[in-house]
Design a protein around this nucleic acid. Sequence first.
RNA 1: GGGGGCGUAGCUCAGUUUGGUUAGAGCACUCGACUGUCACUCGAGAGGUCGCGGGUUCGAACCCCGUCGCUCCCGCCA
Length: 602
Amino acid sequence: MTTTTEHLATTHRTDLCGALRLSDVGRHVRLGGWVHRSRDLGGLAFVDLRDRAGIVQVSFDPKSCPPDVCAAAAAVGQETVVLIEGDVVARPEAMRNSELASGDVEVRATSFTVVGPATPPAIPVARSRTENLAAEELRLRHRFLDLRRPELQENIILRHRLMQVTRQFLSERGYFEIETPILTKPTPEGARDYLVPSRVHPGEFYALPQSPQLYKQLLMVSGFDRYFQIARCFRDEDLRQDRQPEFTQIDIEASFISAEDIMTMAEGLISALWREGGRDVPSTGFPRMTYAETMERYGSDRPDLRYELEIIDASSAFRGADFAITRSALEQGGRVRGIRIPGGAAALSRKHQDEIEADAKKAGAMGLLRLKYVNGALEGPIAKFLGEGAAAALGLQDGDLALFVAGPDRISSPALDRVRQDVARRMNLVSEAESRFLWVTDFPLFDKDPATGALAAVHHPFTAPMSEDTALLDSAPEQVRAQAYDLTFNGTELGGGSIRISNPVVQSRMFALLGIDDATAEARFGFLLEGLRAGAPPHGGIAFGFDRIAMKLSNAGSLRDVIAFPKTTAARALFEGAPAPVPAADLSDLHISINGDHGGSA
RNA sequence: GGGGGCGUAGCUCAGUUUGGUUAGAGCACUCGACUGUCACUCGAGAGGUCGCGGGUUCGAACCCCGUCGCUCCCGCCA
């Protein structure tokens, strides 16, 4: 998607600063912008003028410019908004600036007008090469200044382009963009809701949507057939680097489709977005793997495929070993699984291994069993328990290190996932330039609480089971697979979706399995059930985390760098000062009183 | 809810380990000089509740306790 600048000419300006090139030489132009920097050489002065297109150098030469104009330009302060008029000239070879896109030309000014006087900026917009960014707190407090930085401008502009590509791609394929409510019904499940008190209904509340899930299903029931929305979603949970309380997702739903249809469409959309971001995409389609296989090979449902380090099952090698830890794990039906690290014996010091083990313990493992294969011999505390052929059976090469976890898979998988990521990072096996997509399919429908045996929906309670597994719903629900799919990229989840339950009888049964009785189901999700009973087409969809995609494609280090006005990790908006206390009278109108010492009014 | 890091001039940082005269540097700012710079250069100047509160001490930016803010992580995020 290209943007031309010809439509940006106005009564005040003819061109954008950063867009001027050699082809403009000889033209008389009017520009408006912010003073990025200025250099007064005494008599001769330069101003670097900045707008959304970039920076151009404007020169003020007494030979071609009235003295009062030169003097005004020489005295101008940073970030002042000025209008200038002048001629585009080619710079002599020796005076070109290759660091500037407009560096082959400059504008020789004939007039200079301050239209937006500026106090010195509280945080720098033009930064010296060695100076760090201002503290995050200050960047958020003075957001309008931070957003002037070319890096953030690029991010926000890329975000816009990604949004337009999304709209165009989906609209061309028959998807209607339909808005769903921001004031919705509170949902007791899942993340905490942001609640909005109702003035006209004392004691009742709206909730801001965590996702438009139920609305988009009802749109399918209504026959719109294909829907999308670039939807704002809200979750009142603690924040992370890649998590904001309000975030944007590309929300998609379609009727009379299969999981296959959705995945094909989604690959096209993601490919279009990646190309817009200037990235390569695989020409052969995105690889797929079942959930069971990703857990077996990587211990995670969003494995980073940029490096190997696959998990191996070492149970048979340990089967006869007279070693209490592995023997009891095997006797209790667990396994010994591990990761073979080529060259790890030398590359990972004892200290590194200790740190990796500490992380594995944080992930739930009791410990790591270490085995080295050096100069044709096994080394390490467990070597003596293993038989002659163990190295060969485990596939160990000279110089390898292997790290094992003994126990049930639900312990070893997350621990080895952590070990895998740790080792890859420490041994520099992660190539930042590489792009590895992966569809993960065949998720289990339910997650069974090992303590209580209670079932919880892995995805959400509207996800359809695989038709061939429906017979297991009553006998062995934890074995039922869902018609659900996630798309991962380099170890992070970009989005996920499912085919939904379109049969009201199946939906009711699903609620029952989740321990939601009929009365509760009707109270919470009655409007969905009624809709399904009114005749629902088979339907399904997917949702992508739009901010996260923008973050990946702009190489931003934080979600905050691709959102114009983000919140802090305490969910505050430092610029405008939200949230804020409100006058007691407003609370009274809303039938609300504040407990304890949190009271007070604005 | 828990743990780690950070908080010194408008901004970026040094100084805190081992308490000791008037808390320094670069950028920005003000004044002056300079006609091809592009992080212009040079000279001069102004600018500080050392996040806040309390304690220890003859003496605290520095040690102790508490607290606030930002940030990263765990929990949480169907």
